[in-house]
């Protein structure tokens, strides 16, 4: 290998390590958030946001590793990232909507829940 190739390998390896570290840290944070937050809506905040970027980081690291070690361009990993970006917010929306329809109240101090008011208005009319 020439010197530039070795340098390129080192830089890509550093990038792989960084994105795996950031990704797994974000997933860890998401799980801590799920334990710590008080109600289902705030738990969902942690579960959707942090885990989306965390998984994307791990998958990008896997993509770079396969490319640099085995010369494989793995389109499946990129597709997985794309589908996660599409499906994660939708599933979060459906879970929170189902929870609200079931009557689970969000933890709110001294303020009104706008959706609760809307549902009551519909019932009375």
């Amino acid at each position: 290998m020439t010197e530039t190739e070795i340098l390129f390998h080192i830089i890509v390896n550093i990038l792989i390590i960084l994105s795996i570290l950031i990704g797994s840290f974000l997933i860890l944070s998401a799980s801590i958030g799920i334990v710590r937050f008080p109600d289902i809506y705030t738990k969902l905040h942690a579960a959707t946001k942090a885990s989306t970027l965390g998984l994307a980081g791990v998958l990008i690291a896997a993509f770079m590793f396969l490319y640099i070690q085995h010369d494989i361009v793995s389109g499946k990993l990129l597709l997985a990232i794309l589908f996660m970006f599409i499906t994660n917010p939708v599933s979060a929306h459906m879970i929170s909507r189902a929870a609200h329809k079931k009557g689970i109240k969000p933890v709110i101090k001294n303020r009104k829940d706008a959706y609760e008011q809307y549902k009551e208005n519909i019932k009375t009319n």
Binding site: T48, A92, S96, Y115
Partner: peptide, 9 residues
């Protein structure tokens, strides 16, 4: 849903 501090219900 994927932006700071907001989640559509």
């Amino acid at each position: 849903s994927l932006t700071p501090g907001t989640l559509s219900v």
